[in-house]
Structure formats: C-alpha cells, structure tokens
Nucleic acid binder design. Sequence first.
DNA 1: TGTATTTGACTATATTCGATAGGTATGAAG
DNA 2: CTTCATACCTATCGAATATAGTCAAATACA
Lengths: 151, 151
Amino acid sequence: MVDVTGNPLDPAPVEDSDPLAILPGYTLRRAANAMMAELGTLLGEVDLRVSEASILLLIDGRATMTSTQIGAALDIRSANMAPLVARLDARGLVARVPLDGKSLAVVLTDAGRRVLGEVRRITQDFERDLMRRIPTEHRDHFVPALNALWR
Amino acid sequence: MVDVTGNPLDPAPVEDSDPLAILPGYTLRRAANAMMAELGTLLGEVDLRVSEASILLLIDGRATMTSTQIGAALDIRSANMAPLVARLDARGLVARVPLDGKSLAVVLTDAGRRVLGEVRRITQDFERDLMRRIPTEHRDHFVPALNALWR
DNA sequence: TGTATTTGACTATATTCGATAGGTATGAAG
DNA sequence: CTTCATACCTATCGAATATAGTCAAATACA
C-alpha cells in the first residue's frame, strides 16, 4: 500500500499485517483507546472513572458550576451528567448546593479535595509518561495538532 | 494555570473555562471522540460501524485471515469479533470459509468488495479532511506521535 | 400581570464498545 | 490415547454515549 500521507518524518516500516496503521484516524483511535485504558486502570486506585476524575479536576476552585455547565465544558449530555454527579455525591466527594430554586452548583467537599489530590498525582504522572513515549522531535506538535481537531 | 507541557509551539490562549485542554491525554480523548463520531456518521451511509469498516479494509486481498488473526491485528477480543463478523456475514459482505475443521477464513464476497469501494471513498475523504484540519507545521508529526503510543 | 416558552435536573432506555467467564469441538503433542 | 492448547462461540457485564420525555422553576413577553 502506498503511504498516502506522504509523511517524510516517518520512515518506520509499515507492517503488512496492519495496513491501517498509516491512517491518521485509525492511529488516533488506537492511541486514544490504549491511553484511556491505561488511565482507567490507574484511576482504579481511587475508584474513579475517567469522566468522573475529569469532573473533579474541572470544578476545583469553582463555587458555582452547575452540571449543565460542566457537561458543556466536557461535552457530556446532561442526561449523562446526572448519574455521574449522583455517584460522586453518594461517595461524598461533591455536594450539590442550590444556586436558586432550579440550579444546583456541584462543589468539591473536603473529602473530594483529598481524592482530587490523588487524582492530580495519578494524572500528572500519566500525562508525563505519555509525553515521554513520544519521540522528542514530535512531542511539541502533539497537543496543538490534537486541539485543531476539536477546539 | 501554568502550561505544564512547556510547549513553545502552542501560543494559543488556554481558555479558563476548560483547564483540562492543556492535558495531552485529555486532548487525545476529545480529538478521538470527535473524529470517531464524525467517521461513524459518514459510515452510516453504508450502514457500517467503524470496527466493521476496519475489518473490511483489513481483509481485502487476504484469503486466509481468521477472525482470531483479524482480532489480533485490530485489538478486538475474539468474543467481540464473533458478533461483528456474524453481522457482516448476515449482510452478505463476508463469507466464512473453512480452512480446516476448526479455523474459518473471513473473506470478502463480491458484495463486500462493492461496499468496500464505498468505504474506501468515505475513509479517504475523511482522512484527508482530518489531516487538513491540522496546521501544516504540525501535520507531519501527527501519525508518528500517535504511533509511539501504541505500536 | 398572566400566559407561554425555555431552562435545569432528572428518569428511563437503547446502542455501541470493550471486558470476563465459560462451553464445545478440533488440532497438536506427549 | 490422553492431555493440552487453540478457534469459535454464547452469555453477560460495565462504561460511555445517545434520545425521549417528565417536572418544576425561571424567563419572556403580549
């Protein structure tokens, strides 16, 4: 198969056993699946799923973020936010405090802040290891390229 | 928040509304979700899921690939391969031909080859558009960086 | 002001993907 | 021939994501 990307920086031989490995979309999917599986395992240490940990990281230091706003930031539908926040609430990691008769702010509890410390440690180690696996000449291009695909 | 990646090539301002956007793992997840949702929509035209289209692309021109081998190449468990191949078989896109009393080769049928033509058109357009969305200075680094994370 | 519409949180439910556990029959190896 | 590994499959679970729709509160506006 021809290298349709015409990439001059990737002289690595393409194994005939996987002709899909030169496709950007395919490599994106495989890399993301591999990394998220790894992060999921690491976050098992604090019994949190990736989306739950994302919520904790996002609301830290914010007193008035509603589940709708969190969902808008993380691209999670409000219907799917409900059970996520409910679980965090049930574990005492967040509290839902009324902003008015309708809106609820999702805020960290003291226990939530303690767990968030663990989450920060786990994710920072993970992110650092992830970047280290990328060859130095490609490293600085990684986040900008990805951001162009959704930001 | 500080740019912990220390990336000299990304002067883009980080929106305070999403402090996670500087995290490589997070951007990887968001980009992959966005792209796969898009590809999924495009493949709806031929009523195929991404994993099913991957199988068709992989087995083209191969006469003796078993579902186990396909699964090994695409990182799909054999338990999950079974219903995927069964659906492709039921639609007449692939046939399962015995290699011996135990192994079955999954091969394209004529109908499968026709649909594969559509799949190639869809995926090639998709991959091209994906790469075009990445700024030129980052483009050549994209696939090599991703491949370092799982290959 | 009173009515209509929109919004925020939620329930119920369906689909897709990925995983484990297990079952059955064939092929290989001693 | 017996034992073990292999290939395919079913059943089932967990997580993420999707839609449809409920209900009450907030808002818009005639």
